[in-house]
Design a protein around this nucleic acid. Structure first.
Length: 508
RNA sequence: GGCGGCGUAGCCAAGCGGUAAGGCAUGGGCCUGCAAAGCCUUGAUCACCGGUUCGAAUCCGGUCGCCGCCUCCA
């Protein structure tokens, strides 16, 4: 089985991935707090891990993927109160919305998707263990983790408690008298105020703190130690740091997770007050977010996925219409390449389900075709280098388009080569979760989406295209060109070919 | 204030010590009734300064700029 390397946040190095159990991968990825729709920053994280899972399965690993839903949380309670709803009902609603968005994006469900509200007992048990072991203490109905007791606290984020204390002066409110022994102690259990959502516990009615849920659920489904833990970069501290502390303190097993993968933020370009162009992280609190749903109204899901692959998953990316548009055009290009194979093969009576007989490689393309899969796999095996994988795909597509320049019946070698290229390209696409649809259908989806966005009248366009074809048949070039100008004004571009005229929507 | 990251052609972006992937845009060409699509072709010494090395975009030190985390965050 191919070895891969992963950049591990905890050791701050790229390491060869060695699973705890040969051939198997156990991974836990933090889900979202379900109090609102997901935005494109969330989408990035789940798309990346979706590709990671697809790739590992492609290599032959057996993957167990756990991704939670945080359905008990202050923000959910607050939002529910504003809306006059039950918190868990509100959460359930947004879990449904999350699932819908992910399904549209082609992100498959995780193998286990635990919810906090279903795991109160194991959470309480873990908190009790932490108290027994001296790593936690009760204080007025709350329970806190004693960070100073955990010697390795800070090992993930590379911070030291003393540094953090030094740096926090003036930046954190110290107004209220603390119930905590140390300012960085964090809540494992929070006592309920009034009649808000709560569960009984040895410390009175309350609910879990933010971090303990992941420790309890990851441990329950994957054991005290597992291979990979992931999430957005912004979870490194304090969330994942605290998870490590709680989990390792409670189970006594180290390390909690062997590898930590963190996905870079999605930024949004903005203009600051003094007119400078800046970039900032997309987030709910800054109010500068694009919901996944809104983005998908304007761009095809595969374009969104492609966009996520154009930069290293660890680096920040800038969300912009230009970037999405470019990604969209690349997806269209790739599907067009596949469609051209189908058209060319069809001329010789072959097709996806009717392969041409084996023959030699056309025009010295053997090395490219045979080397493609290796290049593609090697790229992804190198810490999921999707950029390099995309470069390989682009070069294969260009070769496809060279071979399909001719509108004649393909030679036996060309047919065989194109068929092989098609197989390689769609196989690679399957790993990335793109190019899996019949090309003609996908191209129509891409086109219809744009027709929709621009509010165009497809029937009218078809009519004008037909009129133009008639004019061309009559060699009325002036009339044909006039119609093309009319279409062009509507952002419609037409392509004449031996098979007839097709059209596409361009954006500007 | 503390910790971390980034700065590569007009733009996006790989690169992890051996002489700069890929994409978009631009100019030229092929194809086309003319176009479009597609194909061919066209361009960088890697923020700046200094150092290590036979050799650095890649390592070390410093400067400048940008970003993230330190509070809820994917």
């Amino acid at each position: 089985m191919r070895k891969i390397t992963l950049f591990d946040t905890c050791s701050d190095t790229k390491r060869i991935f060695e699973p705890l159990e040969a051939g198997k991968v156990s991974m836990y990825v933090c889900g979202v707090t379900v109090y609102d729709l997901t935005h494109i920053g969330h989408a990035r994280v789940y798309i990346v891990f979706d590709v990671f899972r697809r790739f590992m399965r492609h290599l032959g690993y057996e993957v167990t993927y756990v991704r939670n839903h945080t359905d008990v949380d202050d923000k959910i309670i607050k939002r529910a109160a504003e809306k006059g709803q039950e918190p868990l009902a509100l959460a359930e609603h947004f879990i449904g919305e999350f699932d819908r968005d992910m399904a549209t994006l082609g992100v498959a469900a995780a193998d286990v998707e635990p919810k906090v509200s279903d795991h109160i007992a194991p959470i309480v048990a873990m908190v009790e263990t932490l108290i027994e072991r001296g790593f936690a203490y009760e204080s007025e109905g709350d329970v806190y983790f004693r960070v100073e007791r955990f010697e390795e606290y800070g090992k993930l984020s590379g911070r030291k408690l003393v540094d953090m204390e030094a740096g926090r002066s003036g930046r954190v409110d110290d107004d209220e008298p603390s119930k905590k022994e140390h300012p960085f102690d964090f809540a494992l259990w929070k006592s309920a105020k009034g009649d808000e959502l709560s569960w009984p516990s040895p410390w009175g009615a309350g609910r879990p703190g933010w971090h303990i849920e992941c420790s309890a659920m990851a441990t329950q489904y994957l054991g005290p130690r597992f291979d990979i833990h992931g999430g957005g970069r912004d979870l490194i501290f304090p969330h994942h740091e605290n998870e490590i502390a709680q989990s390792e303190a409670a189970t006594g097993c180290t390390p909690f997770s062997n590898y930590w993968m963190h996905i870079g933020m999605v930024n949004v370009g903005e203009v600051s007050e003094d007119g400078a162009r800046i970039e900032r992280k997309m987030s709910k609190s800054l109010g500068n977010f694009w919901t996944t749903r809104d983005v998908l109204k304007g761009y095809h899901a595969e374009a969104v996925r492609y966009f996520m692959f154009t930069s290293n998953y660890r680096n920040p990316v800038t969300y912009s219409m230009e970037n999405l548009e470019e990604a969209s055009q690349r997806v269209e290009y790739l599907y067009t390449s596949l469609a051209r194979i189908d058209e060319t093969l069809a001329r010789a009576g072959f097709g996806p389900g009717n392969p041409p007989p084996a023959a030699g490689w056309a025009e010295d393309r053997g090395a490219l075709v045979e080397g493609f899969s290796e290049r593609f796999d090697a790229a992804l095996a190198d810490d999921l280098n999707t950029c390099r994988a995309l470069a390989a795909i682009g070069e294969l597509a260009r070769a496809i388009n060279e071979l399909t320049q001719s509108k004649k019946k393909p030679s036996a070698e060309a047919a065989h080569t194109l068929f092989a290229m098609r197989q390689r390209l769609t196989a690679a696409g399957g790993v990335l979760g793109i190019l899996e649809k019949p090309p003609a259908a996908a191209l129509l989806e891409l086109r219809d989406l744009r027709v929709d966005v621009l509010g165009l009248d497809a029937a009218l366009i078809e009519q004008k295209v037909a009129d133009r074809e008639a004019a061309r048949a009559a060699k009325d070039w002036a009339g044909a060109d006039a119609l093309r100008d009319e279409l062009s004004a509507m952002n419609i571009e037409i392509m004449d070919s031996p098979e007839g005229t097709t059209w596409r929507v361009i954006s500007n």
